[in-house]
């Protein structure tokens, strides 16, 4: 347990992550994740077209960009939930091309989802225990011989309870996850990700839909991941949060990386301003899903 779990107004930023000038696709001193020429198209639409990107180890990196920039698609590609048309990418020096999602997770790259995927009709404790790796009792033939897995299961339970206590969810351990609030589910999902001792945690919009009262606690938990030696990559719309905790920011627009750099400097990059303005000149920022409206318009226009 590190001491900086308590809310800190100014988290310690990690600096000196990159080599040379900060810019799209710049080299990092110690990258944990490298992607090269990753492309993914849906029909005629290019969702992701990333030439080169590196994610620095041991730091908190934010992935930002306007709606429809391809952030979630990139997440899905990196974690094996979607297959790119072309490209290669590696995690910790091991190639991830054609590696199914569950193997990516076993390699230590754990993700969460934009819409929380807490397993609603499992108890909070069962949700946690499911996160542990290498369980003997998960084999069908050993599962009905409890003496084979009981001891390991008890250890997993102890670890789960410890993490739950840290996330202040221990009092809810026997409740169904369905009964938790939106913010608590986000916490549970993050806590569950920790059960497998990951090296890289990828959080897809951890703050979306979270009650403001819980935001601070969530932020602290993200910072805590770093202090425990994990690398964090997260997608977020909340610029306040990005500036507050991110050590590095990667900006995407229309499927490409348009800027990279220090969170305070990158926001002044004209490319970033363009990206945001370009995509939103005819809609309220963040309220309407412009991409889908376009698709619908296209659909109706096409037929005329």
């Amino acid at each position: 347990m590190s001491s900086n779990v308590t809310p800190t107004s100014t988290p310690v930023k990690t600096t000196g992550l990159h080599v040379g000038d900060a810019g799209p696709g710049c080299r990092k001193v110690d990258p944990i994740l490298i992607a090269d020429n990753v492309r993914r198209t849906f029909g005629g639409l290019t969702a992701v077209d990333v030439e080169h990107v590196e994610v620095p180890r041991g730091a908190i990196t934010a992935l930002i960009g306007p709606n429809g920039a391809g952030k979630t698609t990139l997440f899905n590609l990196l974690t094996g939930f979607d297959k790119p048309d072309s490209g290669k990418w590696e995690f910790d020096g091991r190639s991830l091309a054609h590696v199914p999602a569950y193997r990516v997770a076993r390699m230590g790259l754990i993700r969460t989802f934009q819409l929380t995927k807490s397993l609603a009709l499992l108890t909070v404790l069962d949700n946690m225990k499911l996160g542990a790796k290498g369980q003997i009792g998960e084999n069908l033939f050993r599962s009905f011989l409890p003496f084979l897995w009981r001891k390991q299961d008890d250890e997993i339970e102890a670890k789960a309870l410890e993490i739950l206590a840290r996330f202040k969810l221990d009092t809810k351990k026997d409740d169904y996850a369905a009964s938790l609030s939106g913010g608590q589910r986000k916490l549970l999902e993050m806590a569950r990700a920790l059960m497998s001792d990951p090296t890289l945690v990828m959080l897809d919009e951890p703050m979306a839909g979270v009650n403001p009262a819980l935001t601070q606690s969530l932020l602290d938990h993200v910072l805590d991941l770093k202090s425990k030696g994990m690398t964090v990559l997260f997608v977020e719309h909340d610029m306040h949060m990005v500036r507050h905790i991110a050590d590095w920011v990667i900006v995407m627009a229309e499927g490409k990386i348009v800027a990279e750099g220090d969170p305070h400097l990158v926001m002044q990059d004209p490319a970033v301003i363009d990206a945001y303005l370009g995509a939103h000149h005819d809609a309220d920022i963040g309220t309407t899903d412009t991409e889908h409206v376009e698709v619908l318009k296209e659909l109706i226009d096409d037929e005329q």
Partner: peptide, 17 residues
Amino acid sequence: GKATRAVSDNASLAAAS
């Protein structure tokens, strides 16, 4: 008919439109 196809494509979006 076009509305039908729009609903078929994405009901909630069609409703929003």
